[in-house]
């Protein structure tokens, strides 16, 4: 099967699920329910595409297929920044009230975090991949605990509620930032078109990429900023989903056997939309479960992750 055929199949599947989610079992107040569903679909699509895009480009510049921005703790960083602002400036601060300002601060902090992470961990291939992975996970735990810790300090009685009040989730999409998220995504894609072929060269490894005239350090820097912005967007919209990027990126590599980033990113984006919108549809309407999609993604993602680890380790050892 040719890659173009595969992409068409994915696109059709994505459309089917979007259609199902938008129209299935829509009772009574159509004018009430329909726009709400559309907003949710849009939010899930923007999130999914942002995660897919950022994960694929991040894995290309770090030359591996297991580490993702989320696994390295980038979305936990978003939570930390939010809680920090809330903790030190209070709920009435302009940084909390003004969503756009707040969002910009979070993005700046995440970009800084990503740069520090890259410079200390990835430069010069000092550490083996499993080491980085473990460090990333523990870092995630550390940032997560620190976040809750701060929340307890803010309100010792209500910290469990604070968590759900401060952060978005699939059941409580942050629609205010939807349009700015969409705008960011579009800008990111316009920029992406210019670097697609450089990313293709990048997958030959650092030395070959430099040999072929890629301005390596500049590209790495730009991609780190790009992934941070995208992860900030997705985390702001629906909260953290740690293993999602890993799943969709690797499914895309497996399904579309190509080095071309234009195809890989498109494929991963479509798989994301299918997984999020389709998954949400199945949870809400087929099984009528009350669980959230993140729980299912964590379950499936965990199993898939172990599978990937075992597969990689076999080729490594």
């Amino acid at each position: 099967m040719r890659n173009s055929t595969k992409i068409i199949i994915l696109a059709v599947l994505a459309l089917i699920f979007v259609g199902l989610y938008a129209f299935y079992d829509i009772k009574g107040g159509f004018s009430y329910a329909f726009p709400r569903r559309l907003i949710k679909i849009l939010a899930m699509s923007v999130t999914g595409v942002a995660i897919a895009y950022s994960t694929v480009v991040f894995q290309t510049i770090t030359h591996n297929r297991i580490l993702t921005p989320s696994v390295m703790g980038l979305d936990s960083m978003y939570m930390v920044v939010q809680t920090f602002i809330y903790f030190f400036l209070g709920s009435t601060s302009i940084l909390v009230m003004n969503k756009y300002l707040n969002f910009s601060i979070s993005i700046i902090a995440m970009v800084l975090f990503a740069l520090i992470l890259y410079r200390t961990l990835f430069r010069a291939d000092k550490y083996p991949i499993y080491f980085l992975l473990l460090v990333g996970m523990i870092l995630g735990t550390l940032l997560g605990s620190a976040t809750t810790f701060l929340q307890v300090l803010i309100d010792p009685n209500e910290y469990l509620n604070l968590q759900s009040k401060m952060f978005a989730s699939f059941s409580k999409v942050n629609a205010d930032l939807l349009w700015i998220g969409l705008a960011i995504l579009i800008v990111a894609f316009i920029y992406g078109f210019r670097i697609m072929s450089q990313l293709d060269v990048m997958s030959l490894g650092r030395e070959n990429a430099i040999n072929l005239g890629v301005n390596y350090d500049k590209l790495v820097m730009n991609v780190l900023v790009l992934s941070s912005v995208l992860i900030a967007t997705s985390t702001a919209l629906v909260g953290p989903i740690t293993f999602f990027g890993l799943i969709v990126a690797n499914l895309s590599y497996q399904f579309l056997t190509t080095y071309k980033h234009s195809v890989l990113i498109l494929g991963a984006s479509l798989i994301s939309i299918i997984a999020l919108v389709g998954g949400q549809f199945i949870i809400e309407h087929v099984f009528e479960l009350s669980t959230t999609l993140s729980v299912i993604i964590n379950f499936v993602g965990g199993i898939y992750f172990i599978y990937l680890l075992l597969r990689e380790s076999r080729s490594a050892g």
């Binding site: 499993y130 669980t291 729980v295 964590n298 379950f299 965990g302 172990i306 680890l309 380790s313």
Partner: peptide, 30 residues
Amino acid sequence: IKFKDAIFIPLIGIMYGNILSSITVFFAYE
């Protein structure tokens, strides 16, 4: 697992714990 890397084993263990934990959260939700 043939690949007994000191770092690799706890990685698998943490993931295994995550899976068990997501099963718990799933049934708790339901």
